[in-house]
Deep mutational scan, measured.
Amino acid sequence: KPGPLPPNLDDLKVSELRQQLRIRGLPVSGTKTALMDRLRPFQD
């Protein structure tokens, strides 16, 4: 099960964002902004 995301996704490196997306079965392509947008729904 994926762990909790930090409140500020901007603090994560692109590689860390991609890792979080992979865990959730989401696409890992695109800019850092696109990756963050994709992860936002999973934040508490």
Rank of each mutant, 00 (worst) to 15 (best):
L35Y: 02
L35W: 04
L5F: 07
P41V: 11
S15H: 13
L35N: 03
R24F: 01
I23K: 10
T33S: 11
T33I: 14
D11V: 12
L21D: 07
A34Q: 03
G25D: 08
I23S: 13
S29V: 11
P6I: 07
L21W: 00
Q43E: 11
P2E: 15
R18Y: 02
K32Q: 04
R22V: 04
V28D: 15
M36I: 11
L17N: 00
P27Q: 12
L21Q: 04
K32Y: 03
D37K: 08
P4W: 06
P2Q: 15
K1N: 14
M36E: 05
T31G: 09
P6V: 10
D37I: 03
P4D: 15
T31F: 02
Q20C: 06
V14L: 10
P4R: 11
L5W: 00
R40G: 07
T31M: 03
K32V: 07
T31S: 14
L5V: 13
G30Y: 00
N8Q: 10
D11R: 10
V14C: 03
A34G: 04
R40P: 07
S15D: 13
L9N: 01
P27R: 07
E16P: 00
A34K: 06
R24D: 04
Q43S: 11
A34W: 00
K13F: 08
M36V: 10
S29W: 05
E16H: 00
R38S: 05
P41Q: 12
G3C: 01
V14Y: 07
L5K: 04
N8H: 06
V14D: 02
D44F: 07
L17Y: 00
S29R: 06
S15L: 02
L17T: 01
T33G: 12
G30W: 00
P4G: 09
L17H: 01
G30M: 00
G25E: 08
K13E: 00
Q43H: 06
L26V: 02
S29D: 14
D44E: 12
L21E: 05
T33A: 14
V14E: 09
K1A: 02
L17Q: 13
N8M: 08
G30S: 01
S29G: 13
L35S: 06
D10L: 11
K1D: 08
L39H: 03
R40I: 09
L5S: 07
G3M: 14
R38F: 00
L12A: 05
A34E: 13
A34R: 03
K1V: 03
L26E: 07
S15R: 09
P7F: 15
D44Y: 06
S29H: 11
Q20V: 04
N8G: 03
N8C: 07
D44T: 01
Q43C: 12
L5T: 07
G3K: 15
R40K: 15
L26S: 04
I23Q: 09
L12C: 04
Q19V: 04
D11L: 13
G3S: 11
Q43W: 11
S15V: 09
L12H: 03
S29L: 07
V14K: 10
G3P: 08
V14F: 00
F42K: 11
K32E: 08
K32N: 03
M36Q: 06
P2W: 09
P2R: 14
G25F: 10
L5D: 08
K32F: 03
L12K: 08
L17F: 00
P2K: 15
I23N: 05
P27T: 06
L35V: 05
A34P: 01
P7C: 09
Q19P: 02
R24H: 00
V28K: 05
E16G: 02
R24P: 05
L39R: 01
R22W: 01
V14A: 05
P7D: 13
T31V: 09
R18V: 07
K32A: 05
L21M: 07
D37F: 00
L21G: 02
R38Y: 04
F42R: 11
R40Y: 11
M36K: 11
T31H: 07
E16W: 03
D44W: 09
D11W: 05
L21A: 12
N8L: 07
L39P: 06
D10Q: 10
F42E: 10
P41A: 13
P4S: 14
K32P: 03
L9F: 13
P4H: 14
D44G: 12
R24S: 01
L5N: 08
L12G: 03
T31D: 14
P6M: 10
V28R: 02
V28E: 14
G3N: 09
L21F: 01
Q20Y: 06
V14R: 00
A34V: 13
Q19W: 02
Q43N: 09
T31P: 09
L12T: 06
P4I: 13
A34C: 05
G30A: 00
R40A: 14
V28G: 10
D11K: 14
D44C: 07
L39Y: 04
Q20F: 11
R24V: 04
V28A: 12
V14G: 02
L12D: 05
D44S: 07
R38N: 02
D10A: 15
F42C: 10
V28T: 14
G30R: 01
V28Q: 13
S29M: 12
L12S: 08
Q20D: 03
P7L: 12
P27L: 02
R18A: 06
P7M: 15
Q19G: 06
R22T: 08
L9A: 01
Q43T: 14
P7Q: 15
T31W: 00
K1S: 02
R40W: 02
L26R: 01
L5C: 12
G25C: 07
D11A: 14
P6H: 11
R38C: 00
L12P: 00
V14W: 00
L12R: 06
E16Y: 07
Q19A: 09
D10T: 10
R22H: 03
R38A: 03
P41H: 10
R38P: 09
L17P: 00
M36P: 05
Q20S: 02
L17E: 05
Q43V: 12
